[in-house]
Computed example of a mutant assay.
Amino acid sequence: MNKELKELIFDQINKNNKRRNKVVFLTGAGISAESGIPTYRGTNGIWVKGSTFYKPESFGTFEHFSKNADQVWQYTFFRKKMFHDAKPNKNHRLLVQIENNLQDRFHCITQNIDNLHQRAGTERLYEIHGNLREMRCSEECTKEVYTIPSEISLKRIDEDLTCDEKELLKCTKCGEDTRPNILWFDEFYNERNFKLHSSLKLAKNSSLMIILGTSGATNLPIRLVEQTLKYGGYVIDVNLEDNNFTKSFSTKKRFYSIREDIYSFLADMLQIIN
């Protein structure tokens, strides 16, 4: 991190503005890469069932779920096993240290559904793509969200759900299939499940937003950056390569790109705020 960015971070951390003094971290798959979790869109994210190959953009949709609920739930428990076997890495742990230092000024908005932020100890967290801890009725007969039954075992990629397990995934109110409480490619953000308005309000009141390991492939992260810049905040994009944020905001005077690994950046930032 160069001297200019260090001074910028120091100034924003010490900014005496009660309304716009939040420091928001926007995280994506890149922060979990060292935990061994492949990205959903990447080559390793393509799911194969028998001789059928599914691309994420077609498999990860409500339309596909409505026709293949058992398939999607089986894959969900395979992913849950992958997340369960992974461990929070040094990036997650550094973020927790920064949160402990900044306290109420710290907030993390994550696109990840892997639960690693929570397991590392992050408390002020907004999951804008949902999570794999919860399920809800696919027919929306109720607004309630339920914890996915712990009685259902985590699955290998080729291991199907049992009949008893399928029954546990039925809505207790209407008897229809439940669904994972995650955002699919053919769905829209909302406040109830995906913290749409809460995250936009955070972005508005941020003096500093730091992007960690996400390319801005979905529309809400782009809107969050727009919101922070619109209301006078600064944005630092920490990624190894240029991305959709670069394409959209590189000409903005309060937008900075830094092309280095997440750990190096967070370690420098921790020194600045200590």
Rank of each mutant, 00 (worst) to 15 (best):
V96S: 01
F106K: 04
S66H: 08
C141F: 11
Q71C: 06
Q111M: 08
E63G: 01
Q103N: 13
S138C: 08
E134H: 08
K81R: 14
Y126Q: 10
H107M: 05
D85F: 04
D70M: 07
D85M: 05
V96H: 02
L132K: 03
G130D: 05
D70R: 11
Q74Y: 04
R119G: 02
T61N: 02
K55F: 13
Y54K: 00
H117Y: 04
I128V: 12
S66K: 14
I148H: 05
R119I: 06
T122C: 05
Q97D: 14
N89H: 14
M135N: 12
Y54D: 02
N115L: 10
E127H: 13
E139W: 00
G60D: 01
E140D: 07
G60Q: 05
K143F: 03
E139A: 05
F77M: 06
L116D: 05
E99C: 09
I109N: 04
F59C: 07
K90A: 13
E144L: 04
F65L: 09
S58P: 00
P88F: 11
Q97E: 15
G60R: 02
C108T: 12
T147Y: 06
K67V: 01
K90Q: 15
S66D: 09
E134L: 07
F62D: 00
I152L: 07
F77H: 08
N89S: 09
Q103G: 04
P149G: 02
L116G: 04
T76Y: 06
R136C: 09
R124K: 15
E99K: 12
T110G: 08
R136N: 10
P88C: 10
R93K: 15
N89R: 14
H117G: 02
R124P: 03
G130N: 05
F106C: 03
T142C: 00
E63A: 06
R133A: 01
Q97K: 15
K80E: 08
N68V: 05
H117W: 01
S138G: 09
R79C: 09
I109K: 01
T147M: 09
L125E: 11
T122Y: 09
F65K: 09
R136Q: 12
P56N: 02
N115R: 11
E134P: 00
M135E: 12
E57V: 02
R133Y: 06
N89A: 13
I148G: 06
E139S: 10
T122F: 10
L95I: 13
Y126L: 13
S58R: 03
N68Y: 13
Y126G: 09
A120P: 04
C137P: 04
D104I: 01
K80D: 05
R136K: 15
N115M: 06
N101V: 14
D70A: 12
K90E: 15
T147N: 08
F65C: 11
R79Y: 00
R124V: 12
D85G: 01
C108M: 14
R105N: 11
E144Q: 04
A120I: 08
K90V: 14
K87Y: 13
D114T: 10
E140S: 03
D85I: 04
I128F: 02
Y75A: 05
E134T: 10
K143L: 04
Y75E: 06
S150Q: 06
R124G: 03
T61L: 00
M135K: 14
H64K: 03
N112H: 09
T147V: 12
T76V: 14
K87F: 12
R133N: 11
Y75P: 03
E123Y: 03
K143V: 00
H129S: 00
S153T: 14
T142A: 02
H107D: 08
E123P: 00
N100A: 07
K67N: 08
N89Y: 10
